[in-house]
Write a protein that binds this DNA or RNA. Structure first.
Lengths: 335, 335
DNA sequence: CACCGCTGTGACATCGATTACCTCGTCTCG
DNA sequence: CGAGACGAGGTAATCGATGTCACAGCGGTG
C-alpha cells in the first residue's frame, strides 16, 4: 500500500498488455480474449486500481456528477428534495454538487455557468429566473423542479400550484369561511402567480368578490409575514381564515398568530413543516411531498442520462389536503 | 459565440504568444512584459476564456471542490450547516459536493473514498465511524463537525455536548424539577455519550440518585421517541420533566406529549427546530446554532486551504439556553 | 490462392492546462 | 571585453484515461 494510487498504466504493465487493452477490460469491451481479460482483472484487484474520475471526465468531456441548484440549501423543502436526489445519485455512484441562488437571477447564472464549466452530466434546477435563453444550447439534460421553465422545452417536476391553491381555499370554504386572506411571496415566480390564481379561482367560483386588501405579498427572506398577518387581523372587516401560499410564510406568520392568541383563525398552509401537526390547533396543509419531487426529478434525469429519450414532459407531483384541525375551524360568529 | 468554448491555446494564438505565456498571465506570474500581458488579457476577454476546471484539476492533482459528508442531507440541522458552508464556498468560487452516510460506517467509507478519488481539496465530515485510521494518510485538510475524531489529530468544530446537556438539566432543576428523564439516540456516537454524561453530571451534582429507568435510548430513524416518552409518562413514578438530547428526539416525542395532553411536562431540547417557539408552551432549547458550526468549520477549512497552518484544534461553537416556556414550568404538585 | 472480413491488440494522439527545461537577448560588473 | 545574471518567452512532456487507426493472424470463399 505504498503507492498512492495505481494508474491504468500500472495495471497494464502488471497484466503485460497495453493501456488500451486494460481500458477495454475495465469498460467492458467484448473484444478481449478471456486470458487477457483475466490477467487484467487480477492486476486491477492486486493493485486496487480505481480509475481517476478527473482524467476520465476530461477525456470524455463529461463529468459523472450532477448539479442541483435551489433557492437555499437550508430551506426545509429544498433540503428534503436534495436529500432524495442525493440518495438516488449515491446508488448510481454519481456525485451531487449543490449550489444555491439566494433567489437572485444573476447568481443563478453564475452558479449555472460554473456547473457547465465543470461539465456536469445533468442538472436539476429550481430556477428563479424568467429568461432561460442561455440554457437553450445546454449540452446536458435539465430537469426543472418546483417551477417549470416557460420559455424552454425541458422536463419539469412541479406541483399543480393553481389546482392545489384552489383546493386549499375550497377546503376552508367547506368549513364556512367566506372571507379568506392570502399570504404569499412578493416574488414574481410562476409558482407564486399560480397559487394566487388558484386562490382567486376558488374565491370567484364561490361567487365572492375578490378583495385585493385580503392579499398580502411579502418579501420571502424577511420576517414580513408576521407583520402582514397582523395587519390583516387588524382590518375593519378581518378575514376569518388565512391561506398561506408557502411554508416560509406559514413559519413566518404562525408565531404572530399565536402571540396574538388568534388560534381561532382558520389556517391552511401550502407545504408541510416540522411540528405542523403538534401545534394547537394542528395545521392543515396541502402536502407537497418534497421527497416525491426529488425522486421524480432524479428518476427523469437519470433516465435521460441512461440514453432514454422520452418526450419532454411536465410531471405533476401528487398533492393532497391533509386535514389536521386549523383548516376545519368554523368561522367565529361575530358581529 | 459559435465556438463552444475557448481553450488556452486559442487565447495564446489570438495574443500571438505561446500557451505557456498565456498561462503565466492567467496565473498571475510576474515575469511577463506589460505588452504581452495586455494582449493576452484582451484575448481572454474577447474569447470569453475560462479555464477548464477539469483539466486544471487533473494537472494539479487537486480539485477546486470541497466535500461535505453528513448523516442525512434532509436533517434540518445538517441542512443549515451545509447551507452555511455552501454560502462561504460560493464566495470563493469553490464547489461543494455533498454526500450522506445514512449513519452507516460502511457507507461513510464508500463516500469518503469516492471523494478522495475525486481529489477534493478539503473535507468537512460529520463522522459516524469510530475508526479513522484510513483517514490518517489523507492528503487534504479535514475538519470534523458535530463529533470530533478521537483517534485522529484533526480540526473539529463541535459543541460542548457534556456541558450543554448539564446546563439544560440544571435549568430544569432551577425550576424545581428533581425527576428528569433523558431521551436520546441509542447510537453509540461520542455526541450521544457526552450528552448522557452531562445529564448524569447534573443529576449527581444535585445529589439525586441516577435512575436508569429514566433514561430512554431510541433508534434515531424510527418513530421510537414517541413510544419511549409515552412509556416514561406511564411509569409508576413518572418524571416531571424531559431532557431531549437532540432535535430528532424532540420532533419525535413532542407530538406524543401533545396527544397525551401532557403539556404541563417540563421540556428542554438540545437543538432548536422550526416552530419550537410557537408550540404551546413554546419549547425551551439549548441553542446549537448550526449556522455557526458551518461557518466555523468552513472558515477553518478555507484557512488551511489558503496555506495557514494553525495548530490542530477542537473549536467549541457557542451554546446557550433559550428559555421559552417549556423549560420553566414548575413540576405539578402531585401525590 | 488471393482476398475479405473479423478478432485481438497496441502505438499514438487527444482532452486542456501546467511546468521542467531551454533559448535568446540584454545588462552589469570585474 | 567577457562572464554571469536575469528577464521574457517558447518547446515539449505531463496528468490519466480513452478514441483512432493500423496491423497481425485466422478462417472462409469464389
Amino acid at each position: 500500500m505504498k503507492r498512492p494510487r495505481a494508474r491504468l498504466r500500472d495495471v497494464a504493465e502488471a497484466a503485460q498488455t497495453s493501456t488500451k487493452t486494460a481500458s477495454r477490460v475495465i469498460n467492458g469491451d467484448e473484444r478481449v480474449s478471456a486470458a487477457t481479460r483475466a490477467r487484467v482483472e487480477q492486476a486491477v484487484v492486486e493493485l486496487g486500481y480505481r480509475p481517476d474520475p478527473l482524467a476520465r471526465s476530461l477525456r470524455l468531456g463529461q463529468d459523472e456528477t450532477i448539479g442541483v441548484v435551489v433557492d437555499e440549501v437550508g430551506d426545509p423543502f429544498f433540503a428534503s428534495v436534495i436529500g432524495e436526489i442525493e440518495r438516488m445519485a449515491l446508488d448510481r455512484g454519481v456525485s451531487v454538487i449543490i449550489a444555491s441562488t439566494r433567489r437572485r437571477a444573476e447568481r443563478e447564472r453564475i452558479v449555472l455557468d460554473g456547473l457547465f464549466q465543470r461539465r456536469v452530466a445533468g442538472l436539476i434546477i429550481a430556477s428563479i429566473s424568467d429568461d432561460h435563453a442561455y440554457l437553450r444550447t445546454s449540452s446536458c439534460p435539465l430537469v426543472f423542479i418546483d417551477r417549470a421553465a416557460e420559455d424552454l422545452a425541458a422536463d419539469a417536476v412541479v406541483v399543480d400550484d393553481r389546482g392545489g391553491a384552489r383546493m386549499a381555499v375550497e377546503h376552508l370554504m367547506r368549513h364556512g369561511h367566506r372571507r379568506i386572506a392570502y399570504i404569499g411571496d412578493r416574488l414574481s415566480t410562476a409558482t407564486a402567480r399560480y397559487r394566487l390564481a388558484g386562490y382567486r379561482d376558488a374565491i370567484e367560483a364561490a361567487g365572492i368578490a375578490f378583495d385585493d386588501d385580503l392579499v398580502a405579498q411579502v418579501e420571502p427572506a424577511k420576517g414580513d409575514a408576521g407583520v402582514a398577518v397582523e395587519a390583516l387581523l387588524r382590518m375593519t372587516d378581518p378575514p376569518t381564515a388565512v391561506f398561506s401560499a408557502n411554508t416560509r410564510c406559514s413559519l413566518g406568520s404562525l408565531p404572530t398568530i399565536h402571540r396574538l392568541r388568534r388560534t381561532d383563525l382558520g389556517f391552511i398552509s401550502f407545504g408541510d413543516f416540522a411540528m405542523a401537526d403538534t401545534l394547537t390547533p394542528a395545521i392543515t396543509i396541502v402536502d407537497h411531498s418534497p421527497e416525491a419531487i426529488g425522486r421524480l426529478a432524479a428518476e427523469r434525469l437519470f433516465s435521460r442520462l441512461a440514453g432514454d429519450e422520452p418526450p419532454v414532459e411536465t410531471i405533476l407531483a401528487p398533492l393532497r389536503v391533509v386535514p389536521r384541525g386549523s383548516g376545519e375551524l368554523a368561522p367565529e360568529v361575530t358581529a
